Computed example of a mutant assay.
Amino acid sequence: MITTILALDLGTTTGWALRRCDGGITSGTQHFRPQRFEGGGMRFLRFRRWLSELHGSAEDIHAVYFEEVRRHAGVDAAHAYGGFLATLSAWCEHHRIPYQGVPVGTIKKHATGKGNAGKEAVIAAMCSLGHAVTDDNEADALALLHWAIDTQEAIA
Rank of each mutant, 00 (worst) to 15 (best):
K114N: 15
G118N: 06
E120W: 09
A121H: 05
T112P: 06
A117Y: 09
T112K: 01
H95P: 08
K109Y: 02
I123K: 10
I97C: 06
L88N: 09
V104S: 14
G105R: 08
H110R: 01
K109Q: 13
Q100I: 00
R96D: 11
P98Y: 02
G118R: 05
V102C: 10
S89M: 15
V102P: 08
G101P: 07
P98I: 12
T106D: 03
E120G: 04
H94M: 14
G113P: 03
A117C: 00
P98G: 07
A121T: 00
I123D: 03
H110T: 04
H95D: 10
V122G: 06
H94V: 04
A124W: 00
I123Q: 08
A121I: 00
K109W: 00
V122K: 11
I123V: 15
K114E: 01
L88A: 13
G115V: 03
M126I: 04
A121E: 11
G118F: 12
P98L: 11
V102S: 07
A124V: 00
G105P: 07
E120R: 15
A125H: 08
L88E: 12
K114S: 05
A117P: 05
A90L: 14
E93Q: 15
A90E: 13
T106E: 10
K108P: 04
V104T: 14
K119P: 14
K114F: 12
A111P: 09
K109P: 01
G105F: 02
R96Q: 13
H95F: 10
V104I: 14
A121Y: 00
W91F: 15
Q100Y: 11
I97T: 05
H94I: 03
H94F: 15
S89T: 15
K108H: 06
I107Q: 09
V104L: 10
P98S: 13
